[in-house]
């Protein structure tokens, strides 16, 4: 599914030279992820999450963002990792995906980076994780996995 997402992005950006797109990179459980800045609305660090009963554990609850109620997903739990205490660097990235707003809790946000879409490659199937299926290796040898936003909100 992620591949098609990338395809769409490529088409949209097809006319810009070298197929460059901006990605926000963040860290969750020592893995670096990237999410297209097209989806990112803002990053917030102070929050009061109102917990909701009877929902899966990865739904941390809802927050009030200037009057809008936004559901918060813990990316660690969503990917089946162990939960971790929230620290000073923990923050929430607010995404808007197909008119649906969600916030994701991540360990820390690193930077905004231009990434050449042509260099993105699929993840070898045996290493594939839920919510990601494409990746890129950077000059310094580190790897960025791309978050499949559409998959994140899929029912």
């Amino acid at each position: 599914m992620a591949e098609t997402t990338v395809d769409i992005i490529e088409n949209e950006k097809g006319n810009t030279p070298k197929n460059i797109q901006r990605f926000l990179t963040f860290v969750s459980d020592n893995i670096t992820f990237g999410v297209s800045t097209d989806y990112v609305i803002e990053i917030i660090s102070s929050y009061m999450i109102c917990t909701l009963p009877m929902v899966p554990d990865y739904i941390k609850g809802i927050i009030n963002l200037r009057g809008q109620t936004i559901p918060i997903i813990d990316i660690r739990l969503r990917m089946g990792k162990m939960p971790q205490e929230y620290t000073d660097t923990t923050c929430i990235i607010i995404l808007e995906i197909n008119d649906i707003s969600v916030g994701i809790v991540v360990d820390s946000v690193t930077q905004v980076q231009d990434i050449d879409l042509d260099r993105i490659s699929p993840i070898p199937t045996q290493n594939q994780q839920e919510l990601t299926s494409s990746m890129i290796s950077r000059e310094d040898g580190s790897v960025v996995l791309f978050l499949d936003c559409e998959e994140l909100i899929r029912q």
């Binding site: 009061m48 109102c50 559901p71 649906i100 707003s101």
Partner: peptide, 29 residues
């Protein structure tokens, strides 16, 4: 109303009809 994303968890069936924002900015269900 609760955010549309949460509808998939049948939140209405658990007895929550919506939410409201309190004077201090917190949310009450």
């Amino acid at each position: 109303p609760l955010p549309p994303y949460l509808q998939q968890f049948h939140i209405k069936d658990s007895g929550i009809s919506g939410c409201t924002i309190l004077g201090d900015g917190n949310i009450s269900i």
